[in-house]
């Protein structure tokens, strides 16, 4: 599917521009021959539209519709296009499994995202264009993508556009509660009805407490 802007309904409010994960929408002056009354209008770069439909959802004026693509296309980054050791190192630094599915919609793995970063995709938008991640539900894969970028030294990527809110930052993590391997007493006390220590061990890869007596679970 690909978006289409209905010129006479578009008010140039730019909300769609601020939420497009592939920055396929920009604002420009309305031409004299275009329908509509507002000075500004949104323009779509069709090749960069990956059917996320965030624009459709946020538009307050029903000025965007979706059409089937006449020529469907596939996007993705070949994991073999980057060094396997570097991919593994980046995933490990980000706390992301290289074979782990990160974007559940596009089925993008940690390794594919890492390869795209190593190939030069240094922002969430560039990663989406290179892999298709963040263009389905646009929600689930958010955090690990920001973690991968930060681990690669690109956590300071500027927002595009500057007023956009496709993403903000990395939210708190369970493992982030650990300082020198321990959780602060006040946090443990505040969440005393949660099996925090046990889950932290699991998140660290230690499943020993779940092994049954005498051998294999």
């Amino acid at each position: 599917m690909v978006a289409e802007i209905i010129a006479e309904r578009c008010t140039g409010c730019a909300l769609c521009v601020y939420v497009c994960p592939t920055v396929a929408l920009t604002l420009r002056d309305r031409r004299a021959d275009e329908a509509g009354t507002h000075r500004r209008i949104v323009e779509l770069a069709e090749p960069d539209c990956y059917n996320a439909q965030n624009c459709l959802e946020i538009c307050p004026d029903e000025a965007i519709v979706m059409h089937p693509l006449t020529e469907p296309f596939t996007v993705g980054t070949d994991v073999a296009s980057a060094d396997a050791d570097e991919i593994r190192a980046l995933c490990m630094a980000a706390g992301v499994g290289s074979k782990q599915l990160i974007c559940m919609c596009a089925e993008t793995t940690g390794a594919e995202l890492a390869a795209a970063i190593l190939n030069g995709a240094h922002s969430p938008e560039a990663l989406s264009l290179a892999t298709g991640a963040r263009t389905g539900c646009t929600e689930l894969c958010h955090q690990p993508i920001l973690q991968l970028l930060a681990a690669a030294g690109h956590g300071d990527a500027p927002r595009n556009p500057a007023r956009g809110f496709q993403w903000y930052g990395i939210a708190a993590t369970a493992l982030g509660l650990l300082a020198d391997g321990e959780v602060a007493d006040d946090v443990r006390e505040a969440f005393s009805h949660y099996p925090l220590d046990s889950d932290l061990r699991v998140l660290s890869g230690d499943f020993s407490e779940f092994a049954p007596k005498g051998g294999q679970p």
Partner: peptide, 26 residues
């Protein structure tokens, strides 16, 4: 927002995701 929802799924344990909800509420 998206960030919090993603963290709930990816960055918390199988029985501690709701710590996100409680922390935000409190």
């Amino acid at each position: 927002r998206l960030e919090t929802r993603s963290a709930y799924h990816f960055a918390w344990g199988p029985r501690t995701g709701q710590m996100v909800a409680r922390a935000v509420f409190e």
